[in-house]
Structure formats: C-alpha cells, structure tokens
Write a protein that binds this DNA or RNA. Structure first.
Lengths: 223, 223
DNA sequence: TTTTTAAGTATTGTATACAATTTATAGATA
DNA sequence: TATCTATAAATTGTATACAATACTTAAAAA
C-alpha cells in the first residue's frame, strides 16, 4: 500500500503542538520553550522553531523578540473580532454557493450535515468538532474560491481554539443541527439572503456560549 | 536620540526580500535559494529560512518540501479570488466606519486622501502606492477591529504584489481620487450601503487593468 | 536507439555550538 | 530600607556542519 511515508520533523512538531494547545495540554499564556519541547519530542530546536513560526502566523501563538513565544491568551474582544471576520467570509462563501451549487453538491452537504448530527447525538465531542468544521469547509470549497477557502479554514481553527483557551469549561450546549438545516434549505432554494442570514445567526450563536456561566475574566491566568 | 536600534537579521532579510519581489528584482517563479541569498545579504541561512517562512504564510512564496521556495506566479484566477476576499473585508470595515466614525476621524481620512491625490498628480508611483494603502488601512483601523485590520493589511500587500508579478507592464492608468472621494462622502453622510458599493467599485476597478493590453497569459514564465 | 541504472551535484532539512539578549539574583551603596 | 550595580542564569538568535532528498548527468544494458 502507501509506502511508510517519510516524515517531516517540522510538520510532526507543528501538529503535535497544535493538538496539545487544542486539548489544553499546553495552557493559554504559557511559554513555548524551544529546548524543552525539542527534548520532549526527541528533535532539535530547529524544527520546533519552524513549527512555532507557523502557529504564530495563524494567530495561535504570540511571539516577543528575544523573549519567547507564548500560547495566546485571547481576550473576549479578540474572540468577537475574529468571529466577525469569519462570519463575513463564510457569508460570502454561502452566498456564492446558494447561487451556483449543483444537486450533487447539495447532496454531499446534506450527507455531511447528517453525519454531524449523528456524532452530536452520540455526544462525541471531538468528532463533532471535526464534522462541524467539515461541513463549513465543504461550503467554502464549493464557493470555488481557493483563497477564500484557505482563509475560512484558518479562521475555523482559530475561533475554535480561542474558545477552548478562553473558557476551560466551554462546551457546546445547543444543537446546531437545526441551524445547519436552515442553511442547507436556503442553499437548496437558492435564497442568497436567507443563506447569509442563516450563516450569520449560526456563527453568532456559537459565540454566545462565551457570555454564559463558564466565562472567565479577561485577566484570567492559567496555572 | 533613539539608540542605533539593534538589528534583527531575520526582519531585515524579510524586508529586503519583500522589497526585492515588489520591485521585480526577483521575478515571479524564481527559486529563493537560501545559501545564495544568505551570502548576498551577508548572513547565514538561518534568518533567510525564517524570512522565507513568513513570506510563505503571506501567500507571496510557494514552498515545496525538499525542493525549495519559489516566488509565486499568480494566475489570473488567483488574483481575482484574492481581490474578492479583500473587497469583502474592506466592505465590512467601511460599513462599520460609516456607522461610527467621528468628525476627527473623517478629517484624518480626508487629509490622507488629499496627500494621496498630490503624489498621484506628481506621478510619484511608489509614493502613490504607499499613500493609497495608508488610506485603505486607516479606514480598516477605524473599524476598531484589529483582527480585521490585520487581514486587510495582508491582503492589500498581497493584491499589490500579485498585480506587479502578473503583469510586468502593469501601471495605474486611472485616477482613483474620485473613487476615494465617493467613499469618503458615503462615510460622511453615514450611508453604509453607498459606502459598501463605493468600496466594491473601487477595488473592482483596480483589478480591471488586468484585462487590458499589458496582460500576460497564465503560463507566462519570466526569464 | 531507448531505457535503466548509478554516480555526482545542488539544495533543503536537521543538529549543535556559539553569541546576544533578557530576566533574575545578590551584593554594594545611599 | 531602598535603590542602584554587577554578576549569573535562562532563553532566544545566529552560524555552521552534517544528513537527507531531489535533480542531473553519464554510463550500462536492453
């Protein structure tokens, strides 16, 4: 089958670091000390530096010259700003899709929405995150705009991780299934305005959990 | 006065490379060979690698594993896609500004538009680019959304460089002064719809030069 | 002649040593 | 005590040597 696939140290480190941040093994605000990570991961500082640079470009890490790189401690304001940008770009995508999408594409979107509903009902949180992102990304793809798609991909990741870092108790507490249904209906009926509104509502709702019980103050500092 | 300001090699290399691309000293599609650049700039490969990584994250360079980094050869499609994303985000910004901006802010925008007009009339092309970006960026700033502002900044750079790389003969041939005037009027009268339309028209016009005489085929390869 | 193979070259990827910078610590001085 | 100064420690920034990979060239085999 597929040959063992030679490994690229930097890629591996990048993925491990990103996962570690996503799973809160590395807390917000903590410094990413190159030599420590290198030893822990069994590589030299070189690929670690490269991986950190990538995380920095994606807005997940905050680098200070001659001081170090720190996992971002997102403020409520920054999270809201990022969500607004994401909403704007996802609206753009869905508007294009609502105008152009084929029956086949619509069927694929429905399939994704369906499998997302299933993992949600089974309470499989990580799988749900992935399935949710898959649906959003597929809509972005179907816009036919690769640049737009890349930005949306980055923003999906960024907003997800910001929420996780901001509120350690953050959990999805509503079922976005109906909202996704609304989006797909709007696409199916080629109603661009309705599609935009549905996307905007959906994204707004996903940030609403922020204002609820689990919220932490902006100056919250992890141990 | 300000102390000599200790230098950061990587930053210096990054700026020099970006300028070199912008000024076409390094042509589209050419490989950025680390050791060559390092020697030419009097540093080691390390800061050169870092600088290239940054350019890659900004979409100006295309890296292939174990092969090298190449100055992007933008296709017409990619340019159009990037402009559409930029337009969407600048529309978002100007809509917010049209709603919220103060008299003082409006005055600053008018001042920027005025100095832009002056350098344009003097046919100072580089200064005009800068002045134009300054105005667009200031509008982005006044949106109060730092994340949005960062994305717009990146996209301004990216679209500018894409045009330069795509069409060696590209030159501004229309005066955007009146378009900027229209945008500022829309902001002044708090007409969000008009502001969005003005921004969209303005950005669409700046890409129109692409379809004119100087256009090169997508498979154009530089010497 | 064409294809395959193998050696050689160019370039990137990684490890490591060293330099520079920042922060922490302790001592000296007011 | 409080503040300044100097030394030490921790960490990043840079240079360089080595390893791995991809490409080129030329020879060998079909």
């Amino acid at each position: 089958m597929g040959q063992p696939k030679k490994k690229n140290s930097e890629d591996a480190v990048y993925n491990k670091l990103k996962t570690a941040i996503r799973k809160r093994y590395i807390k917000q605000g903590s410094q990413l000390v190159e030599i420590n990570l290198a030893q822990k991961l069994g590589v030299s500082r070189t690929p670690v530096r490269g991986a950190i640079k990538r995380l920095e470009a994606e807005g997940l890490v905050n680098s200070i010259p001659n001081r170090g790189a720190f996992v971002i401690t997102p403020t409520k304001k920054e999270i809201e700003e990022t969500f607004l940008v994401r909403a704007q770009l996802e609206c753009m995508a869905v508007e294009i899709v609502a105008e152009n999408c084929t029956e086949q594409q619509l069927a694929e979107l429905r399939r994704l929405a369906d499998s997302e509903r299933k993992v949600f009902e089974k309470n499989m949180i990580d799988e749900y995150y992935t399935a949710n992102d898959d649906l959003h990304l597929k809509i972005a793809e179907f816009s036919g705009n690769a640049v737009l798609c890349a930005y949306i991909k980055e923003l999906l990741d960024r907003t997800r991780i910001y929420l996780i870092l901001y509120d350690p108790f953050y959990k999805i507490e509503y079922s976005p299934t109906s909202e996704h249904h609304e989006i797909l209906e709007a696409i199916a009926t080629r109603d661009q305005q309705r599609a935009r509104t549905a996307v905007r509502n959906h994204i707004n709702n996903s940030i609403d959990g922020l204002h609820s019980a689990g919220q932490l103050p902006d100056d919250y500092i992890s141990v």
